[in-house]
Design a binder for these strands. Structure first.
Lengths: 229, 229
DNA sequence: TTACTTAGTGTAAAAAATACACGTTATATT
DNA sequence: AATATAACGTGTATTTTTTACACTAAGTAA
């Protein structure tokens, strides 16, 4: 049995895995660090939890500091607590993920003092990350693969109005496999949480697709139901 | 935006939600505390993480200290980090659950200095718990409801040899609903992870049921497949 | 031997998942 | 204006899975 020497000399940090979809690629928000340790390395946006904020509040604050965004659907998924995961002391990191729609209007204003810049990076083409962040990210990816089967996640990634083909792309990117178009549409529509709009896509070459909207009210009614692709 | 004053003055604790099945009831292991805060209250078994052990190691250690058991399938499921959740300072608690088969041979040797006793309590009839432990437990229950759909969990609760009716009881207790006997058997057997033994139950009144064994090798082959009851 | 209790079994109907291919339509080009 | 292009949008048949449902068999106890 190991010796147990508890003490109030731990720190707790948050790391955020922010997934973004720009209509074509699945991306992750990374920062380039400007402070030791791992100065000049890419890393997940994260920071230490303050004394007077809950872990959840802290996650919201950090997300806001790094992106300017608030009221984002964000979920805790794991606490990483290896002894040597942080070179400067005993830091337990609580990881959260969030999904964001990218491009268009929403300006990304990250940049806190310790980051040189923040950038969306294609998840299929990542640089080497500091700390155990590659591990944290992998675990986040596994998580959303499972979670996207419970529906509403995908719509966090999409713009307010979207086409069914875009929804399918999100599923295909996250699950890492191709899906049948007709079956996908049949199924996603069978949940009756999408509202077909009168409107069509604009500014595209070739035939424009019909736009849809996610109907949160209807979604809440079938909470818990599963889909599997 | 909140003030962020990070410091190395947090503590991290583990709380274990141990589910047990004695053949009839779903139970939870609780301890009666012998130290402040919440002296004389019932609480989940838990303790502070030591400086030189990872969070996972700590969970194993604490489980062992409180039960004498090791090599238990145990999984982290959430970190609780509200500011005031611990009256004596800033303590983040990482929660784990485990499933144990109860009764028979395995002696339960809990009892560390801060506990007066440890006891299995029917989950349907719990006392008031200290800290935010009721909340932690509720979240653990939700978790296993989802997890039991991924099969192997239920067998952690059962003795090595068990009857199909016992398996069904576990599912019914965790999911909180009655299941159809024929459909349940058809489905559970369709996964081909149970080995029917020559043996029958002994020492029961009335007709003895056939015993089965969980076949881990076969299970590993279908990892990831879902069941839903 | 009888009464009791749990074990164990099958089928039909409904629902869900899968596999699969082509005509339509808006745009861009010549 | 005609044509080429590229993505849109649709239906059916088959298989698989899920659900609903009730009685006989076997072992124990009195």
């Amino acid at each position: 049995m190991t010796e147990n020497t508890p003490a109030f000399d731990f720190a707790v940090s948050i790391d955020c895995v922010l997934f973004g979809f720009d209509g074509a690629e699945l991306k992750i928000l990374l920062i380039e660090r400007n402070e030791e340790p791992f100065k000049d390395w890419w890393a997940l946006p994260g920071n230490l939890v303050g004394k007077d904020e809950s872990v959840d509040q802290s996650a919201q604050r950090i997300l806001k500091e790094l992106t300017g965004l608030s009221d984002i659907y964000m979920e805790q998924y794991y606490a990483f607590g290896d002894v040597d995961r942080h070179p400067q002391g005993r830091v337990i990191s609580v990881a959260y993920y969030a999904m964001l729609r990218l491009g268009g209007d929403k300006p990304l204003k990250p940049l806190t003092s310790y980051a040189k810049k923040a950038q969306w990076v294609n998840v299929a083409n990542l640089p080497k990350l500091g700390f155990d962040h590659q591990h944290i990210l992998n675990k986040g990816l596994e998580k959303i693969k499972r979670r996207i089967k419970h529906l509403p996640l995908a719509f966090e990634l999409l713009p307010e109005k979207f086409t069914l083909t875009q929804v399918q792309s999100v599923y295909e990117l996250i699950l890492g496999k191709k899906l049948d178009k007709r079956n996908f549409r049949k199924k996603i529509l069978s949940f009756k949480v999408l509202k077909e709009l009168e409107e069509k896509q604009r500014g595209v070459s070739f035939r424009a697709a019909t736009l849809y909207k996610f109907d949160k009210r209807k979604y809440n009614k079938l909470f818990g139901k599963e889909i599997s692709f």
